[in-house]
Write a protein that binds this DNA or RNA. Structure first.
Length: 607
RNA sequence: GCGGAAGUAGCUCAGUUGGUUAGAGCGUCGCCCUGUCACGGCGAAGGUCGCGGGUUCGAGCCCCGUCUUUCGCGCCA
């Protein structure tokens, strides 16, 4: 099994042990002739009438057991079925020449069974352990214990454990120390929906499970500790996605005192690079994570979590369309100075078929279409409707700016960038995917930095925090006092790998005066600060060190390293999309006694 | 809360334009088989086609509703 590579070297049990002298991955040619005792699950039965083969499986591997009519164990062997748990005693022998199995580590030997004890039987399986067929999620989750016996997911779970061990070791080696923070905590007013836990002692009051140990880790810094980390469980009552468990997940939560943004990067980068090199199947890992400003990421990639394996970088080509014969774009540009035209270069995408396919795709996304120019033999000046309208001089200029050649194409999106960047980013991804430009065997990391501190809330017509209100604004109090709030950036950063947002972090605002002003700009008085974040705001009054941190998502790291698209493949006992545990039946009703003790009366919806 | 996809034997799936008794592989059970490793051969059992309603002479197939699972949107400081 895949797991055996991760298993410790086997101990030598004596034959007097009740269940085993060896594990199922242990035996080799040099063991031939010796007695052995194996216990495990019957993985597969091959009954030839006269001779019977059984693959026996445990956590460590598979071994072939043989029985024939000369063996006293033959009668029992014939009754064995898949997934029964059995103890085998027998003699190790070298397989007959020509019958070795090179695909199994134990494939040169077999165990000739002399005694068999059935330790437990299995009913007919709702989910075969053998083979690699896909099964529906509800059955997999209901019979998770069978699902977990299967090779791929068994190996994933072991790899998850090894990754977490490695993360811990790497953190400790850098002088970090692991702390435990409360699970029964106070509800936090911002962010996701909380999981609430009713208090028995305080009728009508509730604890909340922490969405992250954010405030606690900052308090740890203010308590005079340094270099905190924790493999921290986080709880958020939000709906699931393929890469997001409902309810709970883990973060490698990190916080450091007396640091700048660069210090945090220098601490975290080697940990992630190291763990991706250790567990990444030899795929190339970015050695020095590039820093990309938030606004550049939006301009170049149409997203704040760019997949840098995709080489396409969008460019502003507004000037080539201003006053051109392509009236749609030219008119938009003339009417509104905020209008821009972005180009998505498509290397090797220079065919009418591909461009038309992209155009239809854009329409299926609710767009009016996707303008394009492509360059091909005989039409070096550019082909397609736009090329005809704007002429060779302009298409040549576009081709030169984008660094394209004959055989390539380019797509164009026009409008107010804040309205179309997301679609442009999706088009960039689609072009990269469809033209097979995205390398499959790399982990491409980057830091996204300089997130805006504030954003305009169109609905409430006011300025809002765009991310964490406790991030330090760049420029400090001076910027808050003198700058247009919408131009202020925060010391706030994300790590992105292959288009997956692995974590976000920040240098925190440790100064109550700056914090007061920051909240004031978003329309919150000091009372709000005191009422909602009293504990932490109080701590800031008594000598808070400059500090900052980050919290990479463990589940997503494991997903990337296991090359799994779904988080349930790397979690032992996941819930389904409706946040139910189908194996253990959670959530479930409380008894009247429990509810009485908690002073809770149910007010259930109709039906 | 909203949108897409799926739901047929224990499991994975096929099922034509709406037409007689709904099929296959795996698994299960029985018989045969002494070198397999997805062993093989013969046979059998196993189905309220998710559920409810409708259209029709006739529905697994068409229509409406509903439930379940999943993917996405909303949500996720």
């Amino acid at each position: 099994m895949g797991a055996c590579a991760l298993a410790p070297k086997s101990r030598n049990y004596r034959m007097t042990h009740a269940y085993r002298s060896h594990k199922c991955g242990d035996l080799r040619v040099q063991d031939a002739g010796s007695e052995t005792r194996l216990s495990g699950w019957v993985h597969r039965v091959r009954d030839h009438g006269g001779v019977l083969f059984l693959d026996v499986r445990d956590h460590y591997g598979l071994t072939q057991v043989v029985a024939d009519p000369a063996s006293p164990a033959f009668k029992i062997a014939e009754t064995l079925r898949s997934e029964w748990v059995v103890r085998f005693d027998g003699k190790v022998r070298v397989r007959l020449a020509g019958t070795e199995n090179k695909d199994m580590p134990t494939g040169d030997i077999e165990v000739y069974a002399t005694e068999i004890e059935v330790l437990s039987q299995a009913a007919e399986l709702p989910l075969p352990v053998f083979g690699d067929t896909e099964y529906p999620e509800d059955i997999r989750l209901k019979y998770r214990f069978l699902d977990l016996r299967r090779d791929r997911i068994h190996a994933n779970i072991m790899k998850r454990g090894s990754i977490i061990n490695s993360l811990r070791r790497r953190m400790v080696d850098q002088g970090f120390f692991e702390f435990q923070t409360p699970i029964l905590a106070a509800s936090s007013p911002e962010g996701a929906r909380d999981y609430l836990v009713p208090s028995r002692v305080h009728p009508g009051k509730f604890y909340a499970l922490p969405q992250a140990p954010q405030q606690f880790k900052q308090l740890i810094m203010m308590s005079g500790f340094d270099r905190y980390f924790q493999i921290a469980p986080c709880f958020r009552d939000e709906d699931a996605r393929a890469d997001r468990s409902p309810g709970e997940f883990y973060q490698l939560d990190i916080e450091m005192s007396f640091v700048t943004q660069e210090d945090v990067f220098d601490a975290v980068e080697p940990v992630l690079r190291g763990v991706f090199e250790e567990f990444g199947n030899g795929w190339a890992v970015t050695q020095k994570f590039p820093h990309i400003a938030f606004k550049d990421s939006i301009r170049w990639y149409g997203t704040d979590k760019p997949d840098l394996r995709n080489p396409i970088k969008m460019q502003n080509v507004t000037e080539h369309f201003a006053g051109s014969g392509f009236k749609v774009f030219a008119g938009m540009i003339a009417n509104d100075p905020k209008v821009e035209v972005w180009a998505i270069p498509a290397p090797k995408g220079g065919s009418r078929a591909f461009c038309d396919r992209m155009n239809s795709w854009a329409q299926s996304q609710g767009q009016p279409g996707l303008g394009y120019v492509f360059w091909r033999e005989g039409e070096e000046g550019g082909a397609g409707p736009i090329a005809k309208n704007i002429g060779t001089e302009r298409t040549d200029a576009i081709k030169a700016q984008l660094g394209l050649a004959v055989g390539d194409g380019a797509f164009f999106v026009a409008g107010i960038p804040s309205k179309f960047y997301k679609f442009a980013g999706e088009a960039r991804t689609k072009v990269g995917t469809d033209l097979d430009l995205i390398a499959k065997d790399r982990f491409d990391f980057c830091w996204i930095v300089d997130f805006p501190m504030y954003e305009w809330n169109e609905e409430d017509k006011k300025i809002d925090f765009s991310h964490n209100p406790f991030s330090m604004p760049q420029g400090g109090l001076d910027a808050l006092n003198n700058q247009d709030p919408l131009t202020i950036n925060a010391y706030q950063y994300d790590i992105v790998c292959n288009g997956v947002e692995l974590s976000s972090g920040a240098i925190r605002n440790h100064r109550p005066d700056i914090m007061k002003k920051a909240f004031e700009l978003a329309g919150y008085s000091e009372d709000v600060l005191l009422e909602k974040f009293g504990g932490m705001y109080r701590a800031f009054q008594f000598g808070a060190p400059p500090h900052g941190g980050i919290a990479p998502g463990v589940d997503r790291i494991v997903m990337l390293l296991c090359n799994e698209p779904n988080i349930r493949e790397v979690v032992l006992f996941p819930m389904n999309q409706q946040a139910e545990d189908l194996l253990m039946s959670a959530p479930s009703s409380a008894t009247p006694k429990q509810l009485r003790e908690l002073h809770i009366r149910l007010n259930l919806p109709e039906n």
